[in-house]
Design a protein around this nucleic acid. Structure first.
Lengths: 206, 206
DNA sequence: CCTGAATTTGAGGGCTGCCTCAACTTTCTG
DNA sequence: CAGAAAGTTGAGGCAGCCCTCAAATTCAGG
């Protein structure tokens, strides 16, 4: 698995790059269901060429997202390196959702990967289990509710992904508020301070 | 506005009823984006007839959902009638989401209405404000976090609606778990008991 | 420069869904 | 029961998106 692929002709390589760039852009703007013809158009290449290089939508995903999702590994690592398990957990979720909120394609991709991970069939199995370790650690430290499970992480991602989808254009920080609610709950707490400070993001119309 | 509408011919009235029944069914199964031609097919009526009676998708919604959404007013009422403001709040959310989880169309419709209500343009303004009163009451009683706002209710509905969408076929009670997390938060609590008893619904594979 | 192989092209066929309208059928009224 | 009004029909036009393939083009090596 090194140089098993024959070198592409110059123009082909150029087109492939243009396609990948366009796809990244289009998926980012429109999500994973974006029309492939839009990608070809934006790449300045015919639809036939697109299918030459990427016979299916999934080949696009495979070319684009693994790297970008792997970037989340660093978020996980740094969360696990945090001395405070709860703070690590918070920073993992913030980091994850911040990435999702920057790109509709990534938002969809994360949902997809986590769903697959739960079915025990994902490529991302690895990343998911690493992420769960963040939660297990916080649990052991008595900071995370004891009944938290892998399903809950997936549920959390589903929930927040939709908040991101709904607000990405008009109030793209709303997910922070949602995360605060998830972390602290709706119930009033004895202590006046809950999470340091995550007030409402600028969602107000007036 | 009483009998301003000329009486429909017998066959027309029959078809209208068939269309409404079919639409209710189809929207329920497929959500508000379901193809209108499927509705005509299931009603045993031509697509032309469908457009005769309901020139736009919205006229369908207007004919179907107001009543069903109004059924939620009873949920709200009974929540407000609850002696315990927090328990009322819980029962409102449970009631709302239970309704959403039973019908994809209603799930979509609730999301739509709440979004509009926030834009101050919804028909449902009324119901939304009534719902908010549940939260205000719980706040006054010191049971709900003091910074809860209307935006948070909408966010909550967005979040849970997605969990419902993702799980409605395979584990339709998952939203309960999501609600528990919202109510109590992820953080471990000093008291051992949080919410009476909402363990994981039967989502586990094994 | 020439040639063969690699690559690109884009018209076109297929599908689904939206919507219209001229021709046809049914109901109602006198 | 006839005629007019009301209602129904479904083919067909439009649009978006998917995907294919024969013909045309471009590249790379001799």
């Amino acid at each position: 698995m090194g140089a098993g692929t024959k070198p592409l002709r110059a123009d082909a390589a150029r087109n492939r790059d243009k396609l990948l760039a366009a796809a990244t852009q289009v998926f980012g703007e429109r999500g994973l269901d974006a029309p492939l013809e839009e990608i070809a158009r934006r790449a300045g290449v015919s639809i036939g060429t697109l299918y030459n290089h990427f016979p299916t939508r999934d080949t696009f995903f495979a070319a684009i997202f693994p790297d970008r999702l792997a970037a989340l590994d660093r978020v996980i690592e740094s969360a696990l390196a945090d001395a405070d398990p709860w703070h690590g957990l918070e920073s993992f979720l913030s980091g994850l959702f911040a990435v999702q909120a920057r790109d509709r394609g990534l938002n969809d991709a994360v949902v997809r990967e986590y769903r697959l991970a739960l079915d025990a069939s994902g490529v991302c199995q690895n990343g998911f289990e690493q992420a769960m370790e963040i939660f297990e650690r916080a649990k052991r430290a008595g900071r995370l509710r004891a009944d938290f499970e892998a399903e809950d992480l997936v549920t959390l991602v589903w929930a927040v992904s939709q908040v991101i989808r709904e607000t990405i254009d008009t109030a793209p920080d709303t997910w922070r508020r949602c995360l605060t609610l998830f972390l602290d709950g709706l119930r009033a707490r004895p202590e006046p301070e809950t999470t340091p400070a995550t007030p409402h993001p600028g969602a107000g119309p007036g």
